[in-house]
């Protein structure tokens, strides 16, 4: 009864509008990322942080507009798997870097 008629394979309907929105957002975020690096206006730390922010923003733009992940009942299991993967990826990457930097510092 609660089935959302338009959700197919756990994804929201793919429309021309969603694809164009995704394309334009991705273009803007990509151009911004290349621009700040080629312009060399910011301090390295500020550049790293901005680049990370732009990449994560583009991740969400494409996941929402292209893959059409959503929080409806039918799409929830896909989104839950995605969020869990983000968590594991964060533990893996941050944990590895933490260990290796500590190791590096202690070997000096």
């Amino acid at each position: 009864m609660t089935k959302h008629p338009k959700i197919r394979f756990g994804a929201k309907p793919k429309t021309l509008k969603s694809y164009f929105t995704g394309l334009i957002l991705s273009l803007l975020l990509t151009v911004a990322a290349f621009y700040i690096v080629m312009k060399h206006d910011m301090t390295p730390t500020a550049t790293y942080l901005t680049l990370a922010g732009l990449a994560v923003a583009q991740l969400f733009a494409q996941v929402i507009c292209f893959l059409r992940l959503n929080t409806t009942r039918e799409g929830a299991s896909n989104t839950l798997a995605f969020v869990f993967s983000l968590l594991v990826v964060a533990v893996l990457v941050v944990g590895s870097l933490w260990i290796m930097w500590n190791l590096n510092a202690n070997m000096m």
């Binding site: 394979f9 756990g10 896909n78 798997a81 993967s85 594991v88 990826v89 990457v93 590895s96």
Partner: peptide, 26 residues
Amino acid sequence: DIDVFGFWIYIMTDCLLFATLFATFV
């Protein structure tokens, strides 16, 4: 729906493969 969900789980495990390679690279 279940088959596509299964494929999505594969995609998520592929994320982990790339995460290890990114960590190694950094």
